[in-house]
Design a protein around this nucleic acid. Structure first.
Length: 426
DNA sequence: TATCCACTGGAATATGTGGTCG
DNA sequence: CGACCACATATTCCAGTGGATA
C-alpha cells in the first residue's frame, strides 16, 4: 500500500508565519501608532512615572503585536537609561474576572507560592502592594482584552491611585488597557475615565491596500517562490477588507487557500482556491465556535432554533424555540433549563452573531416580542453538530434532512453579508 | 392619551463546585 | 473539620416596555 502522506510540499516554504504567536520582524502600516505610543511611554524614560494608556480597536488589528514590539523597545531603552522597569502582562481573557487578575498578579509577584481561589480580596491586594513596594521601581501593567472583565472597573480605579492613597511608596504603577470593544471605553465610569484615559490610542481596521502589504509580507515568508498567482494576495486582502479589516482573518484565508491547493496537488495557488478557502474558513470558524465556545445547553438552543427556522422558513418566537428545545433535551435525556434561562441563551447567541433577532410589536392585540432567525447556513450548523457530539446525531431526523435539501435547493447561502459580520473569534 | 398585550429583562435568590484558613 | 470565599449556573419573581388601538 502506498503511503497516504504527501511527501513533497510544493506550496509552503514554512508555516511559522501563520502561528498565533509569530512576531514579525517588522510591523506594517502602523508607523503613526508607534510614534504616538512612544510619545506616551516617554514619561517612563524621563523618570516621570509610568503613564496610563487605553488602547482600543477590533481583533486582528495589531494591538497586541504592536504593544509587544513596543515593550521590547521600552525594555531596551529603560535598561540603557538605568531605570528599573517591570512589565507585567495579564490576559484578562484567561483570568476572567477582577479577582482572577489580582490573583494572577499576586502569583506573578510571588513566584514562590501560588494563590488559588478562596483568598480574600484584601489579602491579595495587600500582598501585591507590599511586594511591589519591596521590589520598587516602575511597574507597567498590561491588561490585554480588558473588556472581558465586564462592568467591573475596580482594577482601573485601584492601580493608578494606589500611590496617592498611600498603598505603596517605593513603586509607581501605570496601566495599559487593551480592549476589543469600543463601547467598553464609553461605559467606564467617570472616575476611571479621568485617570486611565489620560492617553488613548485607536487602531483602525486595515484597508485593502494596507492588508495587501501585510499579506504580501507573510506570503513571501511562507510560500515557495512563484506558487502564488498574482491575484491571490490582492483577493485575500480585498475580501478581508470588505469583511472585517482584520489581518488575522486575512492570514487564515491565505493559509487555507494554500492548504487547499496542496491537498488537491495543484501546482499553483489561484483565485479559485481563495474562494474555496473563504467558505472553508467560515465553516471552520462556526464549527470551532460551536464545539469549544458553546456550553451544551446553548448548543441545544441553537439547534432547536435552527431546525425550526429550517422547517418554517421564517423567524421563530421564544416559546416555539423553547418547546422544541425541551423536546430535544428530553430525547437526549439531559437537563432542561427554564424559559428565562433559554431567553438569556438566545440573547448571547445573538450577541455572538449566530442568531439574529427582530423586534415585533402588535400593540394591544398582540403585544411585544422578539423573533429569531439563523445567520449562518443550517447546513453548516448541522455539520458542526455531526462532528461535535455523537448524541446530537439522533436529533438530525429525516424530516430535517429533507428540509435541508429543500433549503439548499434554493441557492447558495442567501445572506453572505450577514455571514460576513460573524466574528472569527469573540 | 390611556389601555392593553405578550413578552422582556433586571434583580434577588438558590445551588453546586473548588478553593483557603485556623 | 467548619466557617468562609469566589464564581458559574440556574430559578423565581415581577416591574417594565412600547406600538396598536379605541
Amino acid at each position: 500500500m502506498e503511503s497516504p502522506f504527501k511527501s513533497d510540499n510544493h506550496i509552503f516554504e514554512t508555516k511559522k508565519p501563520f502561528d498565533e504567536d509569530f512576531v514579525p520582524e517588522k510591523i506594517f502600516e502602523r508607523d503613526d501608532i508607534f510614534e504616538e505610543y512612544a510619545h506616551y511611554l516617554q514619561d517612563i524614560i524621563d523618570g516621570f512615572g509610568p503613564p496610563n494608556i487605553f488602547i482600543y480597536g477590533d481583533t486582528g488589528l495589531g494591538k497586541t503585536a504592536v504593544t509587544e514590539k513596543m515593550m521590547e523597545f521600552l525594555r531596551k531603552e529603560a535598561n540603557q537609561a538605568d531605570i528599573t522597569l517591570h512589565i507585567i502582562n495579564v490576559n484578562c481573557n484567561k483570568a476572567n474576572t477582577t479577582y482572577g487578575v489580582i490573583r494572577h498578579l499576586a502569583n506573578q509577584l510571588h513566584p514562590d507560592k501560588e494563590f488559588k481561589q478562596g483568598h480574600h480580596h484584601d489579602h491579595l491586594w495587600e500582598r501585591i502592594y507590599s511586594q511591589m513596594d519591596e521590589i520598587s521601581g516602575q511597574f507597567l501593567l498590561i491588561l490585554d482584552e480588558i473588556d472581558q472583565l465586564g462592568e467591573d472597573d475596580t482594577l482601573l480605579y485601584e492601580f493608578p491611585r494606589a500611590r496617592s492613597m498611600g498603598e505603596i511608596e517605593n513603586a509607581r504603577v501605570g496601566v495599559i488597557g487593551i480592549s476589543n470593544n469600543y463601547l467598553y471605553r464609553d461605559n467606564l465610569r467617570d472616575r476611571v475615565k479621568s485617570t486611565l484615559c489620560e492617553a488613548e490610542i485607536e487602531f483602525n481596521p486595515y484597508d485593502a491596500n494596507e492588508l495587501r502589504t501585510i499579506l504580501q509580507y507573510y506570503a513571501t515568508l511562507a510560500f515557495k517562490d512563484d506558487v502564488l498567482t498574482d491575484d491571490v494576495v490582492p483577493l485575500c486582502a480585498a475580501i478581508t477588507a470588505q469583511e472585517t479589516g482584520d489581518a488575522r482573518r486575512g492570514l487564515d484565508l491565505l493559509e487555507t487557500a494554500g492548504d487547499i491547493a496542496r491537498r488537491r496537488e495543484d501546482q499553483l495557488v489561484t483565485e479559485d482556491h481563495v474562494n474555496m478557502a473563504r467558505r472553508e474558513v467560515e465553516r471552520a470558524n462556526v464549527k470551532e465556535m460551536f464545539r469549544s465556545g458553546l456550553p451544551v445547553q446553548q448548543q441545544l438552543v441553537l439547534i432547536a432554533a435552527t431546525f425550526l427556522v429550517l422547517q418554517r422558513r421564517e423567524s421563530v418566537r421564544v416559546n416555539e424555540i423553547y418547546d422544541t428545545y425541551c423536546r430535544f433535551a428530553d430525547k437526549l435525556d439531559t437537563d432542561q433549563v427554564t424559559k428565562r434561562r433559554v431567553r438569556t441563551f438566545l440573547g448571547s447567541l445573538t450577541e455572538k452573531g449566530l442568531l439574529e433577532s427582530d423586534a415585533h410589536n402588535l400593540g394591544g392585540r398582540g403585544g411585544r416580542w422578539y423573533s429569531y432567525t439563523t445567520v449562518i447556513s443550517p447546513r453548516t450548523i448541522i455539520e458542526a453538530i455531526e462532528d461535535s457530539d455523537s448524541r446530537f446525531n439522533q436529533l438530525v431526523t429525516n424530516d430535517i434532512k429533507v428540509a435541508l435539501n429543500d433549503y439548499d435547493g434554493e441557492g447558495d447561502s442567501p445572506n453572505s453579508s450577514k455571514q460576513a459580520r460573524l466574528q472569527a473569534r469573540w
